[in-house]
Simulated scan of single mutants.
Amino acid sequence: MTGPESEGIKLRRAVCPGSFDPITNGHLDIIARASKLYDVVHVAVMINQSKKGLFTIEERIALIREVTAEFGNVEVEAFHGLLVDFCKQRDIPAIVKGLRAVSDFDYELQMAQMNNGLSGVETLFVPTNPTYSFLSSSLVKEVATWGGDVSHLLPAAVHSALMARLGER
């Protein structure tokens, strides 16, 4: 091992979890802000066997890696199971979540308290940039499916991939 950790310097780590099907500018904003606060930001792409995504896990990972490459401290990988187990396996003490509205807070607070109770992992809530306060991957996919312009809501590479995928249908 080389780098700061091999020299006994503990890196500050956090995780930004989600399904990212696809990653939006709202997601990217939260990841960018976390990357300024932490030495390493892990983007954990959730595998949900019961849901059929528009993009495969591998495609999502590739798109996220492409649009976060400029940050230089983002690692992207898939996970299934409990997020706290992902955190324990990688020595990650913090989860960073974006909050769009009060309705998000109710659910996310429960999750944060459960995660902390299970493992001691802390959750940090970051208010979403108001520009993206309405934005979700599901809404983007629905609008794009019906021909609406979502180009301003997605990184360019993701928009291209979305249009290509929808064109296959």
Rank of each mutant, 00 (worst) to 15 (best):
S136E: 01
R100S: 03
P127A: 11
V150W: 06
D104C: 00
T56I: 08
K88H: 13
V45C: 11
P22W: 04
V43F: 02
L135I: 10
S133M: 12
I95Q: 10
I31E: 09
N116A: 07
T131I: 14
V43Q: 02
N48G: 11
L37V: 13
N116K: 09
V143F: 03
S160I: 08
V41S: 12
L118A: 10
Q110H: 13
L28F: 06
N73M: 05
S103H: 04
S160T: 11
V140S: 00
F79D: 02
H159Q: 06
V15F: 04
D104Y: 01
I23P: 15
D104E: 01
V158D: 03
L118N: 08
L124C: 11
I64H: 13
G26M: 02
D85S: 14
I57C: 06
A34D: 09
F105Y: 13
M114F: 05
E142S: 05
S19Y: 10
V96Q: 10
A94C: 05
V140M: 00
F134M: 06
E75D: 12
G81N: 09
E77R: 14
R33A: 03
Q110D: 14
H27Q: 06
G98I: 11
I64Q: 14
D104W: 01
S119L: 09
M111A: 13
V41I: 14
S137L: 00
G72F: 05
M114E: 03
F20H: 02
T24A: 03
N115Y: 05
S160Q: 13
F105K: 09
N73T: 05
F55V: 05
V140F: 00
L109R: 08
L83A: 12
L37R: 12
S160D: 14
A94R: 07
G26L: 01
N48F: 07
R13E: 12
G53S: 04
T131W: 10
A14W: 02
T68P: 03
D149V: 06
T145W: 07
I61P: 02
P130N: 10
L118W: 13
A62H: 08
L28Y: 06
K52F: 02
A62Y: 03
V43W: 02
H159W: 11
A94Y: 08
D39F: 06
A157H: 09
S103Q: 07
A62W: 05
E142F: 06
L28I: 01
A112E: 13
K97S: 11
L118G: 06
R100H: 03
G26E: 04
N129P: 10
F86N: 06
G18R: 03
K141M: 00
V126S: 14
N115F: 04
N129Q: 11
C16G: 08
L63A: 10
N25Q: 12
S50E: 15
M46E: 11
L82Q: 07
A101I: 09
E59K: 03
F71M: 14
A156V: 15
I61C: 01
V158N: 05
A112L: 06
K97H: 13
G53A: 02
R65T: 06
L109K: 09
L135M: 09
G26W: 01
S50M: 14
D91C: 12
S19Q: 14
H42S: 05
